[in-house]
């Protein structure tokens, strides 16, 4: 595939309203690609198509399968009855649980291993959701607003650490500083979604 993930002529409609209309995009399979655009333009739908959560009415994704992606949802989706550490061990394979300290360090959650989501701030919850997503072994990480509620200096530090991942990152952000630090930015508008 020449190291590129292809979205080819994707069409997704909800109730007769096209959110993606023969949308095409090539995503390099290295580094951090940021998607930027107004709320409701279809960015989340694009991530959900790549994760296999929305089936396009037409078009295809080539270069990666849904099972090879890991998605960070727009909402944290934490389990109120599980601790921070358990959120990570629930996702990690048994023989990879030694990655917990590394993931906690990446999300700057050291010392919070025993806390439950109810005891975390909004930003901490977001970072936990991010760490849990990164605990998955994936060929493409899809991060929907990973730094919502996270203070900017911390968000930029975490963003730098994401460069160390073996797989490319496709993230959605509205934060100008985050976009500046991405390897490439795709500016979008819609619906239906289109590249500016």
């Amino acid at each position: 595939m020449g190291g590129v993930i292809f979205c080819k002529n994707l069409t997704v409609s909800f109730g007769g309203r096209a959110v993606l209309d023969r949308f095409s995009l090539n995503i390099p399979d290295t580094g951090i690609t940021a998607l930027s655009g107004p709320s409701g333009c279809g960015k989340t739908t694009l991530l959900r198509v790549l994760a296999g959560l929305e089936k396009p009415q037409s078009g295809a994704v080539e270069g990666v399968t849904p099972r090879e992606t890991a998605i960070l949802f727009q909402d944290d989706r934490l389990l109120p009855w599980r601790t921070v550490e358990q959120h990570l061990t629930d996702v990690l394979p048994r023989d990879r649980r030694d990655r917990v300290p590394e993931l906690l360090a990446l999300a700057e959650l050291e010392g919070e291993e025993g806390a439950r989501p109810g005891a975390l701030s909004g930003g901490m919850g977001r970072r936990l959701a991010l760490a849990r997503c990164l605990a998955l072994d994936a060929r493409l990480y899809l991060l929907d607003e990973p730094f919502a509620g996270v203070d900017l200096p911390r968000a930029l530090r975490i963003l730098e650490r994401l460069r160390g991942l073996a797989a490319p990152v496709l993230l959605v952000s509205h934060e100008a500083a985050v976009l500046e630090h991405a390897d490439r930015v795709v500016r979008l508008e819609g619906p239906p979604l289109r590249v500016l």
Binding site: A51, L53, R67, R77, L79, W81, R82, D90, V91, R132
Partner: peptide, 24 residues
């Protein structure tokens, strides 16, 4: 339903989905 979607995306087995999401 969002937690069930998460379980599906994060490759939880049926047993894990039952233990971590349904039972609590």
């Amino acid at each position: 339903r969002k937690l069930l979607e998460l379980a599906n995306c994060y490759r939880f087995s049926r047993r894990k989905t039952a233990a971590l999401i349904y039972l609590p």
